[in-house]
Amino acid sequence: MLQTLDKEARLTEEAHRLYGLLKSVSKDKNAKWTYEDCLAAAPYTLSINRFKKEQNAVILAHSYTTPDLVYGVADFRGDSYELALKARETKADVIVFAGVWFMAETAKILNPEKKVLIPAGRAGCTLADAITGEEVKKLRAQHPGVPALCYINSLAEVKAQCDACVTSGNVFDIAQKMPGNELIFVPDLLMAQNLEAELVRRGTPKKIIAAGGSCYVHGHYRPEDVQKLRAEHAGIKVVAHPECPIEVCRLCDYMGSTKGMSAYVAASADKCFGMLTEFGLVNRLEAEHPDKTFIWPCGICEYMKRNTLANTLEALIDPRPEQVVEMEPALAAAAKKSIDKMFELAQ
């Protein structure tokens, strides 16, 4: 009886903790997290945090995953670059990466001796899946001597074929530092357009040779979305990710990475923001800036949302084969060179 009461007390305490964090976060445009939602999540968060401690594990959660993961169990939350840094620095024996496959793969490249788990299994990415390492190799053969950058949203086999990796937060600075007036950039065709335009604006123009695809979330935004936001919300500040089309970014008040957008909102005295990005970031900003209003037209990454409390607990207790990230040593070593070059050039 005492054990039952103790368990109920711990669940209630955990539910109150979660509710305090999540009550201001939208689950969709109309509904909020309720205390009952938090009570249902509490058994999972309590168990995950216990097993995490027992296994000396660290949980890295991308901002596009759900708030119960971001606030309930994550040790670190952020964008690809922030989490790559945390993966490189961690002293944990186990890394649980709540994100998509290329992110967990990057963590394994940086920590070949550690156990790396991804709750969502082989969750893909329309960018990472848009080009293969062999295709990059052929592209480089067609343009001998031209430096090649790959967006971090790419598979290890692509990173292994490139000179340096970049993120949305450092792509412009690193591109400026590359030699020559031509540059191969994969796998984001839309970011390549924004990159070329930004280098012209900075007075360091380069011809960008691009290949790949686009993010199915950010690539769907249109100029009409910006125009509608401004028409319906006087004084709104509109922010966009550089994965958005260039004609969209040119109409916005700010273009930048997930971290950059967060910093822009935090530093601004404005109170209303139009968010042309994935809904998970909107969740975070609502929780962290309750005094500000965020208008979100659309955009959910179903790959990121495949990470749940249930499969995070499963990965810690008894991971399925697809939740365990394995890497061929030679490939990991080749891919690591481009990641290390990013860290070097980003300083």
Rank of each mutant, 00 (worst) to 15 (best):
T312N: 05
K86T: 07
S24H: 10
E314W: 10
M178R: 02
P319D: 12
K207C: 01
V96W: 03
A40M: 12
L5A: 10
G72P: 00
M103W: 07
A31G: 05
S214V: 13
E54W: 06
Y81G: 08
K292W: 05
E134F: 03
L251M: 15
A269Y: 02
S63L: 04
L2P: 08
A263E: 15
D225C: 03
A57P: 06
L18T: 07
D291P: 00
E344W: 03
M255V: 15
T277R: 03
L199I: 10
V146H: 07
Q323T: 13
R250K: 13
M327G: 01
Q176F: 00
A9Q: 12
A160W: 07
L183N: 01
A61Y: 03
I152E: 00
K29P: 07
K137P: 01
Y19L: 07
L313F: 12
A263S: 15
G145L: 14
L276I: 11
E82D: 14
M261K: 01
L155C: 08
T258M: 03
K52Y: 08
N153E: 10
S257V: 05
P245E: 11
R77W: 07
M327P: 01
C165R: 05
A315C: 11
K115R: 15
P223M: 15
S262Y: 02
P187G: 10
T167S: 05
V25Y: 01
H233G: 13
R122D: 10
V136C: 14
T132W: 08
L155P: 02
L60W: 00
Q176N: 12
P144R: 07
K91T: 12
S214A: 14
L251D: 09
T132S: 15
L110G: 03
D129S: 15
K305A: 14
T4L: 11
K159N: 14
V25Q: 01
L345V: 05
S214W: 03
A31W: 10
G145K: 11
Y254T: 04
T45Q: 05
R17K: 13
Q3S: 14
E243T: 06
W33D: 02
D93V: 11
V325T: 04
T126C: 02
A87C: 11
I300Q: 04
E182H: 02
N30D: 10
L139Y: 10
E54S: 07
T126V: 00
D188W: 04
P147C: 13
D225Q: 06
F97P: 03
G121H: 14
A267Y: 03
T106R: 08
D129M: 14
C249Q: 14
M304P: 07
E135K: 14
D93K: 15
V70Q: 15
G274M: 08
E134D: 12
V73G: 00
C162R: 01
L5M: 14
A334P: 02
I109N: 00
V200Y: 08
P112G: 08
L5Q: 07
A175Y: 03
Q193M: 14
T90N: 09
R320Y: 11
T45D: 05
T12Q: 12
I174M: 08
H62V: 02
K138H: 08
P242S: 03
C150N: 14
I184A: 10
A107Q: 06
Y303P: 00
P43I: 04
E232Q: 15
A192K: 01
L149K: 02
S214F: 06
D318Q: 14
S47P: 01
V238H: 02
M103V: 06
H220C: 07
K52D: 10
F343Q: 04
A197D: 12
A123H: 08
Q347T: 09
A128T: 09
